[in-house]
């Protein structure tokens, strides 16, 4: 009877906020499946990660012009390098999406193939970013040069650190797929990973806009 009630069209409360008239009361339905609980918990983590990044963005926005007579963004940023980094990350995000479709269809080999592409493009992004950082530090524009550069290295470095951790996580998941296979717990972890990877791309959109493009235009 309860299943029939839940299939009925919901009229009074389309968003089921009160859940009245839309299937049984939550107390009668038992706990949500682990898939929903895990995904929602990871969603909360991602949003708290956005909040943490907002602090770094605020610091960069406040200190962006505090160059202490050192170089400004226009002097040191290489927009072509940033464009290639952006393309790498965007393609990597797309490959990750293809991988999660393969995972939903329980197709192991295509999933591994797309995860390899995801990892390769992520690694390319990281190599380009580290190359940029090493170049800046070598010409004396390291984080200790000015408040602007401190904020720059903190913000962009923190994103790079997230990508590094994501790559390690991705390699772990590929190892788990090949040893355990696409078991329910592995699939849950892969779902969380793809949320993480797409979220990093969203943060990168904010980074290349606020730090690089607006910085070069100043």
């Amino acid at each position: 009877m309860s299943t029939i009630a839940s299939e009925m069209p919901v009229i009074g409360d389309p968003h089921r906020l009160g859940r009245y008239g839309a299937g049984p009361e939550p107390a009668d339905r038992g706990p949500a499946p682990k898939r929903v609980v895990v995904g929602y918990g990871f969603w909360i983590f991602l949003i708290s990660d956005f909040v943490m990044f907002s602090g770094f963005f605020a610091a960069f926005a406040v200190l962006g012009s505090a160059t202490a007579d050192g170089p400004s963004g226009r002097d040191i940023f290489d927009i072509h390098n940033v464009a290639i980094e952006t393309a790498c990350l965007l393609l990597s995000s797309f490959a990750c999406g293809m991988a999660s479709i393969a995972v939903e269809g329980r197709r192991t080999l295509p999933a591994q193939f797309w995860l390899v592409i995801t990892a390769t493009l992520g690694l390319a992004f990281l190599v380009l970013e580290i190359h940029e950082f090493i170049g800046l530090i070598a010409q004396g524009d390291g984080p200790q040069r000015s408040a602007f550069l401190s904020a720059f290295f903190t913000l962009v470095g923190c994103h790079g650190l997230h990508v590094t951790v994501g790559l390690l996580w991705l390699l772990t998941m590929m190892a788990q797929i090949s040893t355990i296979g696409l078991a329910p717990n592995v699939i849950r972890r892969l779902r969380c990973f793809s949320l993480f990877w797409h979220a990093l791309d969203i943060i990168w959109v904010a980074v290349f806009t606020v730090v690089y493009l607006i910085g070069v235009g100043k």
Partner: peptide, 18 residues
């Protein structure tokens, strides 16, 4: 199975529309 059906309307973040 009934448990899944009752929660059929719930979507976890990032769920594929399949």
């Amino acid at each position: 199975g009934q448990h899944e059906a009752e929660w059929g309307g719930e979507v976890a973040p990032g769920d594929e529309h399949k």
